[in-house]
Design a protein around this nucleic acid. Structure first.
Lengths: 352, 352
DNA sequence: ATGAAAGCGCTAACAT
DNA sequence: ATGTTAGCGCTTTCAT
């Protein structure tokens, strides 16, 4: 053992086992070129000494890295934590470690986080979370990522296009179209949308789906108010308040994610507005708790853990010549927060 | 620039800037001993070349590491994702990167995950999540961690004692005592506990708090049924079903975490049992969604993000001679899932 | 099958 | 203020 207090090195193991450092390395790596007896002896010695290989030395020498990076907007948000769960599971199966970082939806932070991952020479980066509609905001991150791939790194994005990389793309447009059709099919015509910032591509795509369904039903998309607020529960509450005040005839609120829908539900309950009798509410994502709300939230299911797993899988595969895209379905889940336009509304209308 | 296609090295930057590699290193690190003019030139060159320092080389040479490890049971669980959020935030402020790993509540997986973190020479490890009552399960992880600290690593645990390391400890016992008192104060005497596996110290501690409150009210703790199931929403549903079947006179269910409480609420709603009129329900943790449920969940608030932040902070401080413990308060939050014992119950009792 | 030795890219003495 | 050089701990040729 070395004289200093640090952890034992391969050289210590080699010495203790009475072999050369090269043999010790081969024994630990399981490469052939070592007799079984010697290999066993080395491994036993390593165990006895509490030897753990130094990853830094290993990647410096070998050039390879067993770390992958995951970039999310906010890990406390169930959408991202479920994606992260899928990524971590697969990573563990493959013996990889994952570095996670947070951007707080700030493009600049995102950039520095990506830089850090590059510095760590991770073998792959998975970027989860909506991009920005404004190409200027996207450009820097994009440049950084392309430089990374040029240097042999692998990148997969989740729910973000415009980014010349392999991508796992939820069908936001189709999902939003379906849920809108569902609401329309229940007889609603006075809709309102609770949206996050339109600078996010996710918001833009889902909104496009809503508009598509409206148009195909012969309705004027421009007649449906879109209220913008932060893409969070709190934003949902604000939206509900404003919709009720500015568009009192509204009978259905389409929230563009579950968090906002949950906020809407809470605000409506506080204001004594019955759901779905007076107003129907829909979400998007189907986070784990959506089914446990009262009323259960009608929403669009995205297989988030699965998306995380798929993304890492793509990133680990040999790069194709052209970016691959895996589209994942967005399925309508009807629960109790939506219902037919009720008698109540007729009363209110006649009373107005 | 080097001939191979890899990313540029410090040597490339130095050459391009016309300085020695040492000067380049100093310029990039911001150490003094370089004229401002030269430092600027080097940094510009680096930028132009797209140079990003290789962390592996850096930590190998410098001996220091800017990575910390975070071990959680399941990142998809809001309890852990909120803790992770706190850890990631502080880490970003301090320019640290975080490696997160999952154990799935499996002590063996936990061990291998800790080993991996050690191999990565992270400077600190934060272990979040309940430990195991059985010392045998705890022993191996404990040994590994102690070896790590002996080698100069820093460890902080969250919600786990028995582990000779700095710790952030939620006051599980006191919180459980308070919420039990609250329920008792509402006139309930037919309680039941929905618990996770008793092999978890968190479950044991919270149960002890319940028993303490019972005892101080002159009630027999042994008379209160404790139903065990997985520490999840699903487990909560199972508990509610069993409690209703086996102890039909129950008027209050104390779930030992919010996940289980949410499961209880869902099951009771399905079975047409009114909350809180017929049965009161309480949780523990106060996850973000607790206040958005209907009825709002009465629970015990744990400042999870804050706990994560505190834990990392402790881990980053100079080690003390003795383990430090930071206890964080667990405060009762009364919402709508608890209410006084109602007339309904009297009827039911007289009808039985 | 085993060993010797040359790096991997950087930091940190130690010169100058 | 700047340059030279010796490692950090490992993997991997190339010898033997």
């Amino acid at each position: 053992m070395r004289s200093t207090g640090g952890s034992p090195r391969l050289a210590d193991v080699a010495e203790a086992a009475g072999v050369s450092i090269a043999t010790a390395s081969r024994a630990m790596a399981g490469t052939n070129g070592v007799s079984a007896a010697v290999a066993d002896r080395v491994r036993e010695t390593a165990q006895r000494l509490g030897y753990v290989a130094n990853i830094h030395a290993r990647s410096l020498a070998g050039g390879s890295s067993t770390t992958v990076g995951l970039v999310v907007h906010e890990i406390g948000d169930p959408y991202f934590s479920e994606i992260a769960s899928g990524v971590l599971d697969l990573a563990r199966q493959r013996g990889l470690t994952v570095q996670i970082c947070h951007t707080g939806r700030d493009p600049e932070v995102e950039l520095t986080q990506i830089r850090t991952l590059v510095a760590h020479r991770v073998s792959a980066i998975v970027v989860a979370g909506s991009g920005f509609v404004d190409p200027a905001l996207e450009r820097t991150a994009r440049g950084e990522l392309e430089q990374f791939t040029a240097a042999g790194g692998r990148v997969t994005v989740i729910g973000r296009h415009h980014l010349r990389a392999d991508a796992v793309l939820p069908d936001n447009l189709e999902g939003a179209r379906e849920v809108t059709r569902h609401v329309l099919g229940l007889g609603h015509s006075a809709l309102a949308v609770a949206a996050g910032s339109r600078t996010l591509t996710t918001v833009a795509d889902r909104l496009a789906g809503v508009h598509a369904a409206l148009a195909e039903a012969g309705l004027d998309p421009a007649a449906v108010p879109v209220v913008e607020a932060p893409f969070t529960r709190d934003g949902g509450r604000q939206c509900a308040t404003r919709i009720l005040a500015e568009h009192p005839a509204t009978t259905a609120i389409l929230a563009l994610n579950d968090d906002m829908a949950i906020g809407c539900l809470t605000q409506l309950r506080r204001d004594g507005v019955a759901v779905p009798d007076r107003v129907s509410v829909t979400g998007f994502d189907d986070v784990a708790v959506a089914g446990d709300l009262a009323p259960g939230l009608t929403t669009v299911r995205l297989p988030m853990a699965e998306m995380g797993r798929r993304a890492l899988e793509l990133a680990l595969r040999e790069p194709g010549k052209r970016p691959r895209r895996a589209t994942v379905g967005a399925d309508l889940v009807v629960r109790d927060s939506t219902g037919p336009v009720g008698a109540f509304v007729v009363d209110a209308a006649s009373g107005a």
